[in-house]
Design a protein around this nucleic acid. Sequence first.
DNA 1: TGGTCATCTCAGAGTCTTCTGAGAGCGCGA
DNA 2: TCGCGCTCTCAGAAGACTCTGAGATGACCA
Lengths: 220, 220
Amino acid sequence: MVPAPLLLVEDDIQLAEMLGELLTDAGYAVDTARDGQRGLHLALTRTYTVMVVDRGLPAIEGADLVRRLRDRGVATPILLLTALGTLADRVEGLDAGAEDYLVKPFEVDELLARLRALVRRHASAAGTVGLGDRVLDLHSRRVLGGGADPVELSGRECELLRVLAAQPRRTFSRDDLLARIFPDADGTGVVDTYVYYLRRKLGTGVVQTVHGVGYRMGRA
Amino acid sequence: MVPAPLLLVEDDIQLAEMLGELLTDAGYAVDTARDGQRGLHLALTRTYTVMVVDRGLPAIEGADLVRRLRDRGVATPILLLTALGTLADRVEGLDAGAEDYLVKPFEVDELLARLRALVRRHASAAGTVGLGDRVLDLHSRRVLGGGADPVELSGRECELLRVLAAQPRRTFSRDDLLARIFPDADGTGVVDTYVYYLRRKLGTGVVQTVHGVGYRMGRA
DNA sequence: TGGTCATCTCAGAGTCTTCTGAGAGCGCGA
DNA sequence: TCGCGCTCTCAGAAGACTCTGAGATGACCA
């Protein structure tokens, strides 16, 4: 698993260091910005999986930073941190475009759980499906990552891979896959053919045969 | 604005009625299920924009309901309600696949703000683009809504519509569209042809000609 | 009004995608 | 080990998609 790039915007040096270390330990590749201006610049010039932003920032206030990013089309999920716990404050943060909100002081485990939820949700909603070390992008119908060139898939190939990857431990019968993906086909032969196409493009390991039963995702 | 369909899964009749009314007033089209089993069934057979699920449910526990839905590929954002406020409880709910989490008793305004955040975030990330009264779904390459049958688009048609719809007030020159969408084409004639295809499928109004300049989205 | 240029419409060639069917290869039980 | 059925591989037909090019139609200006 490649570490997810995370941007931390926090002006309190002590807190920033503590959080940075903690998040690095949790497997994120952390960039830290000490004020909103730098945070804005980093967020606009690099790509992050998720951002953690303190509300009480010098130069640009946290919720304002979120708004500016959203205005410029940055869709990266953002978790706001705040010392204030009032209702109006929470509502404002969320309406500015933040995905989530955590009131200080907070438990480390909760921060990590919320970040996990944010990342997972964003990936699934953004139209990508995890594939071990690679990723299936449903929009562009391509498989990315794994240190290789992107692989283009046709509509049916993409659909088959999506169904298998959505429940990676489940074995699907040919009839099941046929009903889901090839509604107009005549026999189950199409399924075999498309498994063959996927293996030809992505390597033999992507799809596993369960003899006499059907297919499932390969162990990547 | 069409009301967003919302599924409320809540066993406490009094709370269910109160929330149902409140959410209806807030502009949602609310379906209510009184236990997890019915919630599961409704969530699997209908399409909701967002779901509100109580954790303390008879038959199927709330977090378990979320897990089952996620296993079956339902990506609808879910907000969990709970009486428990413990850390482990919150972490479990989020890791089950819920998008958000609210501890009872909660403020109505906060619930509504969190729902707004959930819906907004999901729509923008889910790969759909607004088209006036219709919606372009980038993943299935279809145009939905407008009281008509879904219209299937080819890859290029979808791409052209996406580019135009992303900046609906801007007029794009043929050269610009050519460079963005038809990188291998020879002359700008392809652009005209695809505008023609879109109009044939979606009606003359979808794309507007700006004589001597190019094309832009039609006023829907 | 007439000329000119832009735009629309559409047929057809080339390519990609989808599905069928058939032979080769393999796994598993007798 | 043998035989049977399951699986893999792949060629090719049918159809969808993409792009070209050309004639018909329409917009704009003198």
